[in-house]
Structure formats: structure tokens, C-alpha cells
Simulated scan of single mutants.
Amino acid sequence: MLFSDRPRSHYPNSPAHEVICQLRYPTILTINAVEPADFQEAIREDFPQYARRQDVTPPKVSGLGGPNPRVEQQPAVTNYHFLSADGRWKLNLTKDFIALSTLRYTGWEDFARHLDKPLAAFIKLYKPAYFQRVGIRYINFFSRQKLGLEDVPWAELFAPAYTGVLREPDVREDQVASCGCDLVLKLDSSCQAKIHAGPGRIQNNAPGAQQDPEVKFIFDMDLSMNGQTPCTLAAAALETLHGHGTRVFEGAVTDRLRDAMSVF
């Protein structure tokens, strides 16, 4: 089964590496042209650190298939960064989206609380027509070493849909160089989930960084609602996505893994 109706659980040994919420809206040019001083003042108590970055956008190619295709360089996009005092929460604002992310996810209620004030301030100051895409992405790294499951095969920890060939009796994990599952699921009439799942090593791209040799199980779940979501329904849309995410996550893990994640 891909979905589970188990009650939502809080796992002390949460595998969440990063959680990102992004809301996209029709382009607001003012944001790219004028520093958001009023927005900063509204959120400065919770996000006192500020930085601005110019993000390079990919060139636009037009006229493909014709005699004179053109490559047009696109202007840089201003990305405003607001960080919490402890650096654990980051808010991004551009002409096309507002996003909140954290590397210290402790639960949905805490995440939603950190989003409430900046989202309300953004809607009040910039008055977006609607949200074109509302999304939540959960990037989970499961470490058997951390969970005390070093000798347990992945096939006993995750549902068959995500372990595939690893469940075959004549296949050992150390024989499989690469094994991943990528799928896109419709969750209801307006929501979908894009999922990548499978074992792999996590690369640290920082210069001179020591690499982690442990093979972890990656469960990357990107949930989204597309269309024209009214600003007044943004919070409800996020709650809907979170609910879908709970059903998908609980459907992916086995009771043995739940027990390991529940240990204090």
C-alpha cells in the first residue's frame, strides 16, 4: 500500500533533513526592484539577519525548429534572505515566490507557526492576486546507524513500492550499485506528490569536507497544489498537503522502522 490512514505520529528520531515550503504567485516586479524594507520590519523580530543575492536564471531559447533559433539571456533575479537569530530558519522572497525552510524540523505545528507571521505580512504588503503553486517538500535521510538498525535490510524497513529489487531473495544489498524509485502521484483533483526514494550516499559539496561513507535511505517527497489558490485559503492548502504527506510517509515505512524512530 502506498498510503496509510494511521494516526499522525511524532518521531523523536525524525529522519527529516530539510523541510521547505514555497508559495509561487504571479510576478510582482516591485519585489525585484525595491528592497523590501516594510516586509523586513514586519518580520525582523523573528528573522533579524538579512542578505541579498542575485540569482542567475537560465537563458531562454526561442525559435527552436526554425531557421534562426535565438538564445536570450535573462536578467538576474533578486533573492532576499531573512534568517532567524540561530540560523535554523530561512525565509526567501523573490518576485515569483516566498519560501520558508529549516534544517531543524521538529513538527508541522512549529513549522506552520514560523510561517504564519511572514506569510500574513507578505499578503498584506504585496497583495498577490493568488498563489499559482503551493508546495511542501520533505527531504528525509534515514540512517540505520543512528537508528540502531545496522544489520537490518532496507526491504524490512520500507514498503515494497520503494524497495523493488532489494526484496528479491537472490539479491544482496551490496550487489546493487544503484536502486531508486521515482514517481508522480495524483493525490486528489488539485494535489500531487513527486517522490524519489532509494538508498544512496549523501554528498557534502563544501570545499575539503569529509564525506559520510554510510549508505542512507533517501525519501524525498515534494507535495504541491496547482491552480489559483486564493490568499485566504493558503493556510488551508498547506494543511491539506501536510495531511497527504502524512498518509504517504506512513505508507512508506514499516512498523519496525516506526519503532526505531520512536525511541528517545
Rank of each mutant, 00 (worst) to 15 (best):
R44Y: 05
P12N: 03
N79R: 14
P128W: 04
S84P: 10
L23F: 02
K117L: 08
Y11I: 03
L119F: 14
Y138E: 00
Y130G: 06
H17P: 02
P36M: 09
T57N: 15
S84E: 09
E109N: 10
F111L: 13
P15L: 06
P36L: 05
N32I: 01
S101P: 12
T102R: 06
I139M: 05
A37G: 08
I20V: 13
L29N: 11
D96C: 07
A99P: 02
N13T: 05
P26L: 02
L149S: 11
R88C: 06
A99E: 07
A112C: 06
L125I: 15
T27F: 03
G135A: 13
R88H: 07
G65F: 07
L29D: 10
Q73S: 11
P118G: 08
G148M: 11
Q132S: 11
T78L: 06
A120R: 14
R24D: 05
W89F: 06
D46I: 07
P59M: 02
A129S: 14
S4K: 10
P26R: 00
P75H: 08
A16V: 11
W89S: 06
Y50C: 12
S84Y: 09
L100C: 09
L29H: 12
P7T: 14
W108L: 05
E72P: 11
D151L: 15
I31S: 00
R133A: 01
A51P: 09
S84M: 05
P26G: 00
D96A: 08
L83I: 03
S14R: 11
E109G: 00
T78M: 12
L91V: 03
F142A: 07
N32Q: 11
N13F: 06
T30L: 02
Y50A: 10
F111A: 06
